[in-house]
Design a binder for these strands. Structure first.
Lengths: 117, 117
DNA sequence: CACGAATATTCGAATTATCGAATATACTTA
DNA sequence: TAAGTATATTCGATAATTCGAATATTCGTG
């Protein structure tokens, strides 16, 4: 079914960014205010808000307004399951993907160096 | 872990296109030659090859060369599980997302109309 | 109502993704 | 080795993402 595939592709795209994965992980088992997410993720406020807008648009996340702040939560824990599956997948294939692994850690070190400046 | 998040984001991005989802679904329980995929998907040969290159790069799919042709298969059935989870997710939330649904079916009809021309 | 705090939106620039057309490569068979 | 078939790569145009800076909105409090 074509619309189902489009739907899946949209969900995947919503999750296709490390920051948005970090958001979903942070909301794994409790709702959080935007401010708390901002503290954890250490990115620009506007940028976080943009990423949240993307997750909201795809209904990955829902926002609940309480006075001055917004509490976000996952709409469905199934996405947590998906992330868990991918974690297994990642570790299962580490040995088979030396190249990718070393690329990843290299990129990681580069990022840390960049952050240190 | 940051590199794990990057890894997940990369996998999601690999899957963030309806054509690539269709490829993964077609390979769900058997390997297939590129030619067969081409028949099923009804897209340009070059385009299919590009999408396969993306899936190969992310190791979602592996190609086995046999003479003149290439047989593709899924590297790990976990991705099939992920797609199944999303299917459940889709149907579970249909009633809660009338707007998205109607957008989807509208887009679907538009696509069919476009194809009919 | 003015002000501050929390969050969202808009804008413009840089990067990345997507597609079809053209071309290249690899293998098979005459 | 020439021709044919299957698949991959390159190129250039267009569209979509991403980011920070600036600005807007919304709400609570004095």
């Amino acid at each position: 079914m074509e619309s189902l595939r489009r739907f899946k592709a949209d969900i995947f795209q919503a999750l296709a960014h490390p920051t948005r994965i970090a958001i979903v992980e942070a909301l794994r088992d409790r709702e959080l205010q935007t401010g708390v997410l901002l503290d954890r993720l250490q990115i620009e406020q506007a940028n976080l808000s943009q990423h949240l807008a993307i997750l909201r648009a795809r209904q990955v996340v829902v926002g609940r307004k309480a006075g001055n702040q917004v509490y976000y939560s996952l709409r469905d824990p199934v996405l947590t399951k998906v992330l868990d599956l991918l974690k297994q997948y990642f570790y299962a294939h580490l040995s088979h993907s030396r190249t990718m692994l070393s690329d990843l850690t290299k990129a990681d070190r580069a990022t840390k160096r960049a952050r240190a400046r």
